[in-house]
Structures are given as structure tokens and as C-alpha cells.
């Protein structure tokens, strides 16, 4: 019950200052080691759902527990400790282009080393080793000393994944990780995420726009619509009618990656 990798949403509600509802009271249990894909049209609350897990977006009401510990609503030491065990991957990579790949990955270790060591770039050998292994896991260890901004989009996203892995997290949150990538790279990155989930048993939540990707790579699919949970089931059992319910319309070619690639 106190497994570090479990996530529990209870009446989780987020209302933004402008009145927009991000989450309209979500109850949801994520079991350790699950690979969950979250689908929904834009504005349905997919990002809010992920960002509330590591407190980037605080809940207005309700609660979220990660490994039995409630997510603190205020910035501070406790929230930082929780975030240290939760890796996050972003649509726009969010790596520092001007710094080396290695430094970017070591950012995944900042919460694990004393502040002065990070400040002076005196990372312990053990942490450098963790960073290197993270790079090897996504096959870009040869780029360790290259300026991150000089890499291709797919490689930059791998740096983002390696940074998350360097945290040695119990949970990975991936917010539209393939939305800025071409179809070939998209499949590579999705396979990386699935492989990491299987090999390391890291609980993974992925937001995706494309339905075929969701069905192909997800174990469990969660559908959000206007901040509410409208679907929760296995990837095998999801039907066209379910998608219609989630999106409020029939899915078309634009919702399928491989279709839009062909057109």
C-alpha cells in the first residue's frame, strides 16, 4: 500500500485563476509499474493531470498521494523531495541548449547531491556514473559532451528522457513526449518509454494525442474530457465508440499518426 510508485487521486480538482477547470474532481488509482496512456482533446486536462502529480500545478481541492505521501501544495523542501523521485518528460524537451548533454542529464541528480557540489560542478563519481548509464539506456552516450542544442529533435528528447532516468525515479510523467517529433522518431521514443517501463518497472503516465499510438503502446488507457475521467480500461478493449465519447466526435485521420503521415 505504501509502494513509492503508486499514485492515488481523490476528488482531485484544479481551477485556474482565469476560471478554467483543469480537473473537475478526478478519482483514480495508478498501480506500481503500470504504463498508462492518457488521451483527450486539447484542454481536456491531460497536462493538468500529470502536472498535479509532482505539484507543478497545485490542486484547488481534493488530494493526490504518491507512494502514500500527500503531494504538498506549497513549494518547499518536502515537495522537492517528492519531485526527486518523479521524472518528467516534456513535449518541448526543456533541456538547456547551451549546456552539454552531460550537464543536462546531471540536472536529474540535483536533488540527490549537496547543493554546493552541483553549484561548483563537482558531481560525485557515482552520480556521473548514473548519468552515463541513463544516456546509454537511450543510446546517446556518445553525445555526452556535445552541446545539447546541437542535437536533433529526437536526440534532444532522449536527453530529456535520460535526465528523468538519472533521477532513478519511481514514476515517470511524459507530457505529450512525441508531439514535436516526426513519425519515425515518434515510434522510437515510444518504444524507449515502454522498454524503460518494462526493464526498470517505473510507473509511467504518458499523455498522447494520437489514438493509434495510445492503443499500440498503452497497457491501460485513461480518457479525459473537460477535466473529467470518462474512460478507464485496457488498451485492448478500447473501442471506436469509446474514442467518440472521449473526443465528443468521431475520430478522423488527423487523430491517427500513421494516417496523417500518409496523407
Amino acid at each position: 500500500m505504501t509502494d513509492k510508485a503508486a499514485i492515488r487521486f481523490q476528488g482531485a480538482r484544479v481551477v485556474y485563476p482565469n476560471g478554467a477547470v483543469g480537473l473537475a474532481g478526478v478519482d483514480l488509482d495508478i498501480k506500481p509499474g503500470e504504463f498508462v496512456v492518457v488521451v483527450g482533446s486539447s484542454g481536456a486536462g491531460k497536462s493538468t493531470l500529470l502536472r498535479s502529480v509532482n505539484g507543478l500545478t497545485p490542486l484547488t481541492s481534493g488530494s493526490i498521494t504518491v507512494g502514500g505521501q500527500p503531494v504538498p501544495k506549497k513549494e518547499g523542501r518536502e515537495l522537492r523531495r517528492l519531485r526527486a523521485g518523479v521524472g518528467m518528460i516534456f513535449q518541448d524537451f526543456r533541456i538547456t541548449r547551451r549546456l552539454s548533454v552531460m550537464t543536462n542529464v546531471l540536472v536529474g541528480r540535483v536533488a540527490h547531491v549537496p547543493g554546493w557540489r552541483a553549484m561548483l560542478n563537482l558531481w560525485p563519481a557515482a552520480d556521473r556514473e548514473i548519468a552515463f548509464r541513463a544516456l546509454e539506456r537511450v543510446s546517446i552516450a556518445d553525445k555526452a559532451w556535445v552541446r545539447a542544442g546541437d542535437l536533433s529533435g529526437g536526440q534532444q528528447q532522449r536527453v530529456g528522457i535520460a535526465r528523468a532516468l538519472a533521477q532513478e525515479p519511481a514514476i515517470i510523467l511524459a507530457d505529450e513526449p512525441v508531439a514535436s517529433l516526426d513519425p519515425v522518431t515518434t515510434h522510437q521514443i515510444m518504444r524507449d518509454l515502454v522498454r524503460i517501463n518494462q526493464e526498470l518497472g517505473i510507473t509511467t503516465l504518458v499523455n498522447l494525442h494520437f489514438l493509434d499510438l495510445a492503443r499500440r503502446y498503452g497497457q491501460r488507457i485513461i480518457g479525459l474530457k473537460a477535466g473529467e475521467l470518462v474512460y478507464d480500461g485496457t488498451a485492448d478493449s478500447v473501442t471506436q465508440a469509446d474514442f467518440k465519447n472521449i473526443y465528443g466526435r468521431d475520430p478522423d485521420a488527423g487523430d491517427l499518426l500513421d494516417e496523417s503521415e500518409a496523407s
Binding site: 507543478l56 522537492r80 519531485r83 516534456f90 538547456t96 543536462n104 540536472v107 552541483a118 533521477q167
Partner: peptide, 19 residues
């Protein structure tokens, strides 16, 4: 966006500034 990613990794205010 990048400073937010550093915070998401558990980084402090100083780490957010530095990286």
C-alpha cells in the same frame, strides 16, 4: 519552460537559476 523542468526534477531555486 526549462527552469520549470529543473524544478520538476526536484531542483532548488539556486539549481533552477544555475541550470
Amino acid at each position: 519552460a526549462v527552469p520549470e523542468a529543473v524544478r520538476a526534477a526536484g531542483g532548488s531555486w539556486l539549481a533552477m537559476l544555475q541550470f
